[in-house]
């Protein structure tokens, strides 16, 4: 693939992610994973999981973070980062400027409301799919991985532990256990 083709393919992929990225952060993960990991093989599942972890502990939305990171690693250039970050932001820019212009038409629109009702429920499935896709052999290397998963799940679900603290604790556990 020529360098221009790579840039075009990155642009189209991240534009699509921005355009169909409904439901925020985690809901976009399966979309990013499908295109970036499965279709284009720009990074491995383990690297993708690392980006999600890094994303949890650095400023900014996961979609931006992934775009900036993959833009750099796929091209080896800052321009790759810039192109991907612009591509993922463009759909929001176009759609939100239009909405801001016609704010009152979108407010209380029953069609928008109905479509959102369908999305709200289905997006949960996409988040579930993201979790299931990441539960593979690269991320779960042995029984210790399942113990870490179970403890992290309970700490988040029952005790609402802060995600950054959780990642730090899991990192320390990994360093000691492996």
């Amino acid at each position: 693939m020529s360098e221009l083709d790579l840039y075009i393919s990155l642009f189209i992929t991240f534009f699509k992610i921005g355009l169909f990225g409904f439901g925020g952060g985690y809901a976009m993960l399966s979309l990013i994973q499908h295109d970036v990991v499965e279709t284009h093989n720009w990074i491995s599942v383990a690297d993708f999981t690392d980006i999600v972890a890094i994303s949890q502990s650095t400023p900014g939305p996961i979609a931006f973070n992934t775009a900036t990171y993959i833009g750099y690693t796929a091209t080896g250039s800052i321009w790759g980062s810039a192109i991907c970050t612009i591509a993922v932001s463009l759909p929001s820019l176009i759609i939100m400027i239009t909405i801001s212009k016609f704010f009152f038409m979108f407010r209380d629109n029953k069609y928008v409301e109905m479509a959102m009702q369908g999305l709200k429920i289905t997006v949960l499935g996409l988040i579930g799919a993201a979790a299931l896709l990441l539960m593979n052999k690269q991320n779960f290397v042995d029984y210790k991985s399942y113990i870490i998963f179970a403890i992290a799940f309970i700490a988040t679900f029952k005790f609402k532990m802060d995600p950054i603290l959780m990642i730090i604790a899991a990192g320390i556990a990994g360093y000691l256990l492996y």
């Binding site: 999981t49 999600v52 991320n139 991985s145 870490i148 959780m166 990642i167 990994g174 360093y175 492996y178």
Partner: peptide
């Protein structure tokens, strides 16, 4: 090693 511990925790967070 650090990331081996972090990866399953990220799946739990999701």
């Amino acid at each position: 090693r650090v990331f081996k511990g972090i990866r399953p925790a990220v799946v739990a967070l999701i």
